[in-house]
Design a protein around this nucleic acid. Sequence first.
DNA 1: GGCTGAATGTGACTTAGTCGCAGATCGCGC
DNA 2: GCGCGATCTGCGACTAAGTCACATTCAGCC
Lengths: 230, 230
Amino acid sequence: MTRYIGAPGHWRDWVTHFPALARLEPAARDELLDNSFEVRLAAGEIGYREGDACNNFILRIDGWSRIQRLSANGREVLLYRVGPGDSCVLTTSCLLGVSRYPAASTAETDLREVAIAGATFRRLLNTSDVFRQFVFEHYGRLLSDMIALLDELKFRRLDARLADLLLARTDGGSPVEDTQSRIATDLGSTREPVGRILKQWERKGWITLARGRLEVVDRDALTALAADQG
Amino acid sequence: MTRYIGAPGHWRDWVTHFPALARLEPAARDELLDNSFEVRLAAGEIGYREGDACNNFILRIDGWSRIQRLSANGREVLLYRVGPGDSCVLTTSCLLGVSRYPAASTAETDLREVAIAGATFRRLLNTSDVFRQFVFEHYGRLLSDMIALLDELKFRRLDARLADLLLARTDGGSPVEDTQSRIATDLGSTREPVGRILKQWERKGWITLARGRLEVVDRDALTALAADQG
DNA sequence: GGCTGAATGTGACTTAGTCGCAGATCGCGC
DNA sequence: GCGCGATCTGCGACTAAGTCACATTCAGCC
């Protein structure tokens, strides 16, 4: 972690990436800016691991990371992703509950983010309505999302979830550049069942398969299947 | 909801059920007591439903309720229970994030609780360090708990989870007075697989089964199984 | 071209959940 | 005590999903 040492005027601009923070009370805004520093991570690097202690509140300026949970038996779920304008809500949770990270974070692209020391974070929560609102809105949304994810992972069929994933990843009609194994991990499943479903869909002409790559041919078929199975 | 109209001196006693609130600043304490009212629910009644808006912060004095998520296909997960001395953390989440309940609450026993209007809640968060601390500590833990639950429900074997449940419910050696169907629901599973496992265990002499009731004979066997399967 | 490692394909097997129905048991009114 | 309906439990066949053990294919590289 490197304290940002560019031109101060420019540095303070990062707040503009967070519209909700634009309305910060002047004192709170100063406290935030004076006690924050920039962090950069390269794609592939690990932000934190399960069990790590958490010292800083994090605001993502640029880039995407994945937050995933590694289960005891080696399996893995993608819990959610953090992108520009987000805060890393697990960090909030740890700072609030004084606990350790219950999941791990990996950079999927190069990252640029702002870190705020735990003490500053807590002070701001005490003193600033706007900051508190900002933090809890994110937290509340993620909590809802986690409950929805639980529901989805536990009760929805794999083919429906896979269909949704493919549709989401091919929004512009572009192919999915990913291995079946990584797709399976994103779904909290494993390679074989995912591979079998994909193979079936290829036989039906809904998709085309290649090594590390996949193209959706019949979006309607997938949409129908996803809707059918809840 | 009925505003409490008993002897004021007696009413204010409820705070003693929440040790963390005993150290409240005098002004905050008065504000809390002057703006709270008692709510009673009978066993079986519904506290709130999914999608409901949330207006009051809730502190449970007495009784137990279950917070559960109803899935699209009619299945159900028990997310957590709220008991004496707890606050209903989903309520906190909704109040803080101004969102709607992502799950439902049902009284398992008769309930007695204290409700605090949203406006008062927010005012206390601004003014009282002790209150804020109380709320945040409960709240920070919830997200961690949900992630742990996700992990457990998705990746841990049913027999191991069932063993844990039985052990937890027979801590004092007392029998479990519950139907297999309700036990299954608590585990996020269904009657048949749970029934099959229980039947096996009965044949092995680990438990005895009766209608709506079950007794653990060999705690060690269950403990070993739960440990074995993660 | 041939090697190597990663990605994919496949079948047999286990665990979990679904469906349909049969049988057992309890409470309750008569 | 008897009959009745509701609830609880048992069971078998079937589907969905995940595990395990391999075989096969492919891309990139010397």
